[in-house]
């Protein structure tokens, strides 16, 4: 079966500085690929490049179609949702408005039901519905960001360090919810994560990024077992 997302020879960076030097990544349909590596290896840049948030070269195919020349909003409309680094909360809007914006691309009648489903998974969002989103705690904002991304009913979810800055208990909670929703809605995921063991446990495929190049790729279990990989790249 062809991969849902195929990245080939992706080069990208900020201004004159190139961060990614031609990388290949696949996310299988229904699969989870973890993208690991040290700080500054280019993980966030990869997600941003896939979403067209910065200048990039190379081939990016989503469901067989080229998206490497498309604008960010068009990529979202095709079914890729991105929970960005820093969560991307609309801080001066209410939680409810944030959720409605998540479903901005949809014209179907199922939005209300999906928002209700999000409340099942993230009850705290229901309690905070009328609050300004900027006043939420970090964990709540992360939940809001994930709910917002899911409400576009994506086929592929890009997650940028969902555990960042959160208490271990909250992280566990968020990953448990992600597992459930993934199964329910059949969503594929490209996960960037600092916590390698957490990510390898969640993913079925893993790529290790080193200074803008893919150093290693393979099944998550294999990558996780490799002593040398663990020592050199993952640090545990």
């Amino acid at each position: 079966m062809p991969a849902l997302l195929e990245v080939r020879g992706l080069t990208a960076g900020y201004g004159a500085g190139e961060v990614l030097h031609g990388i290949d990544i696949d996310v299988a349909s229904g699969g989870v690929t973890a993208l690991l590596g040290a700080n500054g290896a280019g993980k966030t840049t990869t997600l941003r490049a896939i979403c067209g948030m910065l200048q990039r070269r190379g081939e990016i195919r989503f469901d067989g179609a080229r998206i490497d020349a498309a604008a960010t909003q068009a990529i979202t409309r095709r079914g890729i949702a991105h929970v960005p680094d820093g969560r991307g909360t609309f801080t001066d809007l209410t939680v409810e408005e944030n959720l409605r914006l998540g479903a901005y691309v949809r014209r179907d009648g199922g939005v209300a039901a999906d928002i209700a489903a999000m409340f099942e998974h993230f009850p705290v969002l229901r309690a905070r519905l009328r609050q300004t989103a900027g006043l939420l705690s970090g964990g709540e904002q992360q939940m809001l960001a994930i709910a917002r991304a899911l409400l576009s009913r994506p086929r592929l979810l890009l997650l940028d360090e969902p555990s960042f800055g959160l208490a271990p208990l909250v992280v566990q909670q968020i990953f448990a919810i992600l597992r459930r929703i993934r199964a329910e809605w059949n969503i594929s995921i490209l996960l960037v994560e600092q916590d390698a063991s957490l990510a390898l446990d969640f993913a079925d495929h893993a790529c290790i990024l080193d200074a803008g190049r893919i150093a290693l790729a393979g099944p998550a279990a294999t990558v996780g077992r490799d002593e040398q990989v663990r020592r050199v790249y993952l640090g545990y």
Binding site: C51, A71, T72, T76, T89, F90, E97, L101, S152
Partner: peptide
């Protein structure tokens, strides 16, 4: 309103 407050996130939700 979203675009005025946070252009990058707005693009990410498809605006």
């Amino acid at each position: 309103r979203a675009a005025a407050g946070n252009a990058e996130s707005s693009r990410l939700v498809g605006i």
